[in-house]
């Protein structure tokens, strides 16, 4: 059991290092959205997700509605439901219900990717170990970014704002390169997002993401239904 925890712990180190620098970007973004370092930390410690937090911070900054917040988080983070479902096929008997309730919190794109790529079943100790360093990296990076926003020269702080978007690009570009259907989804979604931003400025950024993504996903699901081997995200 302790061995599994250690293995997970060390597998989580590279994820944690990556998270530190990316959440640094979130800390900066939060401060420029007038969210204090403490609340930026609280958001990171209770959400542990990049895209959802960026969208959430934008809604908070714009004093959006709670309905908008719920819908936005639902759409942006829905992939975690799929990942969680996919992971259930991989869990050994050490995953009791209380442990599932606790460890579900740690399902992120990268933690999922590492956990699902293990040989055979995984234990609850392994998954617990895997979550530790990414959680520390994500929360401490957020605070460092929020504080650095006040200390760094403006030109550097400004350019850190692109970090999270760079990470998003790093996820969807390789996928679009491999699959024409994903490329079409990305292009439709980006195009609708641009149209909404410039021609329907009264639609908030949160709803704009939902509308753009759902239109693109429904069109692509109709045009290019996935084959069995493509299902796993």
């Amino acid at each position: 059991m302790q061995k599994d925890f250690k293995k997970g712990f060390s597998d989580g180190i590279p994820i944690g290092l990556g998270y530190f620098s990316v959440s640094f970007g979130f800390g900066i973004l939060a401060m420029s959205s007038k969210i204090s370092a403490f609340f930026a930390w609280l958001i990171s410690a209770t959400n542990l997700t990049s895209a959802g937090q960026v969208a959430g911070a934008e809604i908070i900054a714009a004093s959006g509605t709670l309905a908008e917040m719920i819908l936005t988080q639902l759409v942006i983070n829905l992939r975690y439901s799929l990942m969680g479902f996919s992971l259930t096929q991989k869990l050994d008997s050490s995953f009791t219900t209380p442990k599932r309730l606790l460890l579900a919190f740690g399902i992120t794109d990268e933690i999922y990717a590492v956990a699902i790529s293990q040989k055979g079943k995984i234990t609850a100790s392994y998954m617990a170990g895997l979550i530790v360093i990414p959680f520390i990296g994500w929360t401490s990076g957020t605070v460092a970014g929020a504080l650095a926003n006040q200390l760094l020269p403006e030109i550097i702080a400004n350019n850190m704002g692109i970090l999270l978007y760079g990470m998003f690009i790093a996820i969807f570009i390789p996928a679009a390169k491999k699959s024409k259907a994903v490329l079409v989804a990305v292009i439709i979604s980006a195009a609708v997002s641009v149209v909404l931003k410039y021609f329907f400025p009264f639609i908030s950024s949160g709803f704009s993401v939902i509308i753009s993504a759902v239109i693109a996903a429904v069109i692509c699901a109709a045009l290019f239904p996935v084959k069995e081997e493509e299902e796993e995200l």
């Binding site: 759409v75 992939r79 998003f168 989804a185 990305v186 993401v209 753009s212 693109a216």
Partner: peptide, 8 residues
């Protein structure tokens, strides 16, 4: 992917 593209 669509969500990430629209956010970006």
């Amino acid at each position: 992917y669509a969500v990430l593209a629209a956010m970006t």
